[in-house]
Design a protein around this nucleic acid. Structure first.
Length: 175
DNA sequence: TAGGCCATCTGGTCCT
DNA sequence: AGGACCAGATGGCCTA
């Protein structure tokens, strides 16, 4: 992805510059980056002022910076894992717009409603069509259904289905 | 050009 | 003690 690789290049350049003490960035460093540096310096100043960082770890600046880089890398890996999980979730939600990727919030919302509608449908079907044999899963389903119906009722099930189909419809139109 | 979405950095807190 | 997790801040990209 173009965006990603661009970010990556800049990040690596920043890391390299910081770690090796070389200037690998172009001379026209974006104003935003400068502001960010200023902010970071400001934060460090605040931290040092309160003494929290120095009090906790007696690391010199180089060590601290190295540890920061390491934990940045771990954080990136963690976020990549999270994004992989989001992607996996997108792939198991049916009838979503194929040409546009669902956003994270859309993915979660759609998944929630999909699960709700599936759950209520399954419970409804199993209670109505499966024989109730003692000690079987069907019996448990039946009990579960009774409980679920007490909690939510048919109206809610229909509501969930309606909600889900409406959502899919709006996503399609929005694309 | 404003707003939405995202990736990344960061410091604090929690957990093992 | 160190890694995982979290939330806030920020900048970049894209689209209406």
């Amino acid at each position: 992805m173009k965006t990603k690789s661009k970010r990556m290049k800049h990040r690596l350049a920043v890391d390299k510059e910081a770690f090796l003490g070389e200037t690998t960035l172009s001379k026209e460093e974006p104003v935003k980056c400068l502001r960010r540096k200023e902010r970071r310096n400001g934060r460090n100043y605040e931290s040092n002022k309160t003494g929290t960082v120095k009090a906790k770890h007696a690391w010199n600046n180089k060590d601290r910076h190295l540890r920061r880089l390491e934990s940045n890398e771990r954080e990136r890996q963690r976020m990549h894992k999270l994004n992989n999980a989001f992607q996996a979730l997108r792939e198991v939600i049916p009838h979503v717009r194929a040409e546009n990727k669902l956003s994270k919030i859309e993915t979660l919302t759609l998944a929630k409603n999909y699960i709700k509608s599936l759950t209520s449908t399954i419970l409804h079907m199993s209670s109505g069509h499966l024989p109730t044999v003692e000690g079987t899963g069907a019996a448990n389903s039946s009990k579960l259904y009774q409980h679920y119906q007490q909690q939510h009722g048919d109206e809610e099930r229909d509501e969930q289905l309606k909600k889900y189909s409406t959502q899919i419809h709006s996503f399609r139109q929005g694309s």
